[in-house]
Structures are given as C-alpha cells and as structure tokens.
Amino acid sequence: GATAVSEWTEYKTADGKTYYYNNRTDESTWEKPQELK
C-alpha cells in the first residue's frame, strides 16, 4: 500500500511549546496527531 505523507507539520511557539498544524485542513492541535504516532 502507499504510504500517506503526513500533512502535519510540527511548530514551536515563542515560549517553546510544541504544536502541530495540518496544511490541508487548516487545523492545529496541541496533541500529537494519530498519523505521527
């Protein structure tokens, strides 16, 4: 099967917290998305 390329990108805020942003859905989350686990 084809490997899905994750749409999630990991970013850090100014105070060093990590969050994740999805370019396709324009969604952001503090929790690590399922695709990255």
Rank of each mutant, 00 (worst) to 15 (best):
T13P: 00
N23D: 09
T29Y: 08
E10N: 00
W8S: 01
R24P: 03
W30P: 07
L36W: 07
T13M: 05
T18A: 06
Y19Q: 04
Y21V: 09
E10D: 00
S28L: 15
D15S: 08
Y11I: 14
K37H: 10
A2G: 12
G1E: 11
T3V: 12
K37T: 14
P33Q: 02
T29E: 04
R24A: 13
Y21A: 02
G1T: 13
T3F: 11
E27G: 02
N23I: 12
Y20L: 01
T29V: 14
A2L: 14
N23P: 12
Q34A: 12
T3Y: 05
S28T: 15
A14K: 11
T18D: 05
Y21L: 03
V5M: 12
T13I: 00
W8V: 01
A14R: 07
S28F: 15
T13A: 06
L36R: 07
K12L: 11
E7M: 05
E31V: 11
Y21P: 04
N23F: 10
K12G: 02
G16W: 00
G1N: 14
A14T: 09
K17N: 08
E10Y: 03
R24Y: 15
Q34T: 11
P33L: 03
T3I: 11
E7R: 03
G16Y: 01
S28N: 07
A4Y: 06
G16E: 02
W8Q: 01
Y11Q: 09
S6E: 10
V5E: 12
R24N: 10
G1K: 12
E7Q: 07
S28M: 15
S6I: 08
P33F: 02
K32E: 08
T25F: 03
Y21S: 01
Y20R: 00
E35F: 07
E7F: 05
A14H: 10
A2I: 14
E35S: 12
Y11S: 06
W30G: 05
V5A: 13
Q34H: 10
Q34I: 14
A2S: 14
K12H: 10
N23Y: 12
N23V: 12
T25P: 00
Y11L: 15
W8L: 01
E10F: 02
R24H: 11
K37R: 14
V5N: 12
E31D: 10
T25N: 04
W8K: 00
E27P: 01
W30H: 08
K12N: 06
A14F: 04
G1I: 12
S28D: 04
